[in-house]
Nucleic acid binder design. Structure first.
Lengths: 149, 149
DNA sequence: CAAATTTATTTCAAGCATAAAACATCAAGC
DNA sequence: GCTTGATGTTTTATGCTTGAAATAAATTTG
């Protein structure tokens, strides 16, 4: 490998470490806020967020696909949310294997409160960037994530 | 809140979601590779990486500070690494509370192999960016992480 | 120096995450 | 209508992660 490529490789590694650091910084803040002020967690918030966008409900497999986590993982989180009365599970008629999960009225209410707070927390953490910088970052990072469905 | 701020707030939220997505994309790949090809994990890799930079060893509390994770967390990871013979723990003379952790010769060897592979994996994932783009991303994300010691 | 506080670490309980195995149901093809 | 295979979900084993409580040793202070 030549010198230019070695340099490039180092920069890529450096970027990855910065991504990790930045992500951890924001995520830690959000986790702590959710725990302290709403007695909840980021995974629960993510599940509720997906269900809030699909008010008619989602199947377990749709949920895990959207959140890009394993099936078994979603099983546990939904179970706890159901225990708190924030989501409910219903059978899907025509397919007795499937489970339809949706927010309860209380879940909708609680999510609205959390989502509003969540937006202000993210605002605080990312307040240093100008609109142009935000656009730049979004456009560049977009090339990495695979939210291209 | 006025229209401009609402717009800005939306962009910040959008950026945060992109950061999550991008981070998850890369991390998932690295995790899978480490597991399949080196029978290891990212947390173990992180601990070994820190110890590789400090060959004289680090205390448990230094380790958790550098990695920005909890003390109890490091206890478990170091325990498993010690079980695999990759790190060793020694007493610190002058302070019987403390533990000094360092890589064993085998740990040094194993880390070198993993680190080389790790760099090529990151290379693959971030290969779409030009040198200029990498610089831009690094500089911008640098304003978020708190690796300013 | 004894008591109180701080510092270094581990233990514990709870939850999150994965991969792999187990179950149950559905859909096709003979 | 059986068998075979695919699909939807849960269970299991293992490991990571946190916050809080528990231990233990060092330091400070009256």
């Amino acid at each position: 490998m030549n010198a230019a490529n070695r340099q490039l490789s180092k920069q890529r590694l450096r970027l990855w470490l910065r991504m990790l650091s930045a992500q951890r910084e924001v995520e830690g803040y959000l986790r702590e806020k959710l725990r302290a002020e709403h007695d909840s967690t980021l995974p629960r918030f993510d599940v509720m967020s997906a269900l809030d966008r699909y008010r008619d409900g989602l199947r377990m497999s749709d949920l895990s696909a959207k959140l890009k986590v394993s099936n078994g993982n979603v099983t546990g989180i939904v179970e706890r949310l159901a225990g708190e009365g924030l989501v409910e599970r219903a059978v899907v008629d025509g397919d007795r294997r499937a489970m339809l999960v949706r927010l309860t009225p209380e879940g909708i209410q609680r999510f609205a409160e959390m989502a509003a707070a969540h937006e202000t927390w993210v605002d605080e953490k990312l307040s240093d960037f100008t609109a142009a910088e935000l656009d730049t970052l979004i456009k560049l990072l977009d090339r990495l994530g695979d939210h291209h469905e």
